[in-house]
């Protein structure tokens, strides 16, 4: 299990690096899918099969599919490739990269030696009980936020020339 965790984590890191560095948006998205699948496996090895399944169903199965659709519809061509190449020039990313490195070192120092995670399977029932028990307020607030987003999307997508 521990071995599987490290393999999945390494795949996730490698795939994420590829997402950032690919010039073609479709290729980047496909690497993003791989990265999400690897994270799902990481969650599974940590004993959270429910979270792993949701990660695959929601992120890899629904949200990134939407991304792929949009990218394919926009039909990004050579101009977008050239733009990506400009953005990936060393002088563009070296500054933010150095600053992020400082933050990473700080994070590692703060985290320090953490106790190893105990892999004990968390069942779907346990997740449900926690969501609708202890975290009910958070769930409700999130659902209200999503509803507002839904209404907003409906409003934006409405035809303005209605009835004419």
């Amino acid at each position: 299990m521990e071995f599987a965790f490290y393999v999945a984590a390494a795949v996730a890191l490698a795939a994420t690096v590829m997402v950032v560095t690919r010039l073609d948006a479709v290729h980047a998205l496909l690497y993003l899918v791989v990265s999400l699948l690897a994270i799902a496996l990481v969650l599974y090895t940590l004993g959270a099969p429910f979270a792993a399944a949701l990660e695959v169903i929601l992120y890899a199965g629904a949200i990134v599919v939407l991304f792929v659709f949009v990218v394919m519809m926009l039909n990004l061509g050579r101009v977008a490739l050239a733009q990506e190449r400009r953005w990936l020039a060393p002088r563009t990313w070296i500054g933010p990269g150095l600053l992020a490195l400082v933050l990473l070192v700080e994070l590692l120092a703060v985290l320090g030696p953490t106790p190893p995670v105990q892999p004990g399977a968390i069942s779907a029932q346990a997740v449900g009980a926690a969501l609708f028990g202890r975290y009910l307020l958070g769930v409700e607030i999130a659902s209200m936020l999503l509803l507002a987003g839904l209404v907003g999307a409906c409003h934006l997508g409405r035809r303005t020339t209605e009835g004419t």
Partner: peptide, 23 residues
Amino acid sequence: VDAGLLYVMAITSMGVYGVIIAG
């Protein structure tokens, strides 16, 4: 597996990438 149904749904949701025109 305990979450068998979730597994099936997760796996089949990956099929969309093959036929991206579906869905």
